[in-house]
């Protein structure tokens, strides 16, 4: 959902937007003014002094120090003002308040994952309470990513082996897009997530439910597995209809024999799938690059069993047809 704050800027859903919008509008106003001035004078001169006859006389003026001084000093002063304002607001964007709710973010090739250190919840969508500052401590597991929420006007590169911090304080409930804005390869444009802003009480219920979506208790394990297949970006490498991808297809995988890079054969059962999720590099299927990132700490046991059930459900379809 992307509402619009103004023609130019997305919806204003966080207290941090004030640090960007006011300056944006000020610069916009100033630039439109200068632009109209330049174009108007150019068109005026072009029309007024168009060549009416071949011998039209032209002025010998070749400079005017006073005018040149004016149009150097005025832009210079305006620019210094913009610089100072820009840096002051940047500092408030950069340094989070002391009491902010800390959430750890991990950027990995083509999916975001959020861990709530206090409550031990791991999700692929960022669920935050309304009206409370949230501080994200972010790290990447492979290449550069960049965490961008247009609705909150926040963006920060996520660098491997380094923590980078960004903070916001959501003021409106709703779902807002999370984009990755640092080019990171094939799935760069699929690295989408949502920030779900809940009211204080809903957030608390969500925490008590251990991070399950409302009303998800009744869902079957296969459905949860199917949801995780989508949310955890397994689909970017593993297809479920047999087409070849970066990783082996899931169709007919469960129960089949897989030839490994190391040469020996292995039966694809619950343990093999669990091991491949937690430690993918251990036994790599022959003919596939060992690029799968580890999901250790990003999927809890319940979610892994859900994924295994989902793989079983795909596996049986193939046997039928």
């Amino acid at each position: 959902m992307l509402g619009l704050g103004s023609f130019w800027l997305p919806v204003d859903a966080s207290s941090t937007t004030q640090y960007v919008d006011h300056l944006f509008n000020f610069i916009f106003l100033l630039c439109t003014l200068f632009f109209i001035l330049i174009v108007f004078v150019t068109v005026l001169f072009a029309f007024k002094y168009r060549r009416k006859s071949a011998s039209q006389r032209t002025s010998p003026i070749s400079g005017n120090h006073k005018l040149e001084l004016i149009w150097s000093v005025i832009p210079g002063v305006l620019l210094v003002i913009i610089f100072a304002w820009g840096f002051r607001d940047y500092m408030s964007l950069r340094v989070p308040p002391r009491d902010a709710l800390e959430i750890r973010v991990t950027g990995v090739k083509w999916a975001w994952s959020f861990t709530y250190p206090v409550d031990g919840i791991v999700t692929t969508d960022l669920v935050v309470p309304e009206g409370r500052p949230v501080k994200l401590i972010m790290v990447s597991q492979d290449v550069l990513h960049s965490f961008f929420v247009p609705a909150f006007r926040i963006k920060q590169d996520v660098v491997p082996h380094r923590y980078s911090v960004v903070w916001f304080e959501a003021t409106k409930t709703g779902n807002y897009n999370i984009f990755c804005t640092e080019y990171c390869g094939t799935g760069h444009s699929q690295m989408l997530s949502q920030v779900k802003v809940l009211s204080g009480s809903d957030y608390q219920d969500w925490i008590d439910r251990g991070g399950e979506e409302a009303g998800s208790a009744g869902r079957s394990s296969v459905d949860v597995g199917k949801h995780l297949y989508k949310k955890q970006a397994c689909y970017t490498c593993h297809s479920i209809d047999g087409t070849s991808g970066v990783g082996p297809t899931f169709q007919g995988l469960y129960g089949s024999k897989e030839k490994l890079e190391s040469g020996d054969e292995i039966l694809v059962d619950d343990n093999f799938i669990r091991k491949s999720i937690i430690d993918p590099g251990a036994d790599v299927t022959e003919g596939f690059p060992p690029v799968m990132p580890t999901y250790k700490g990003r999927l809890n046991d319940k979610q892994i069993t859900a994924l295994i059930d989902y793989l079983k459900s795909i596996g049986t379809d193939k046997v039928k047809n």
Binding site: R94, R162, Y163, V165
Partner: peptide
Amino acid sequence: RLNIEEGTFY
């Protein structure tokens, strides 16, 4: 220096 509490790698 500026982001002391972030515990950056450096």
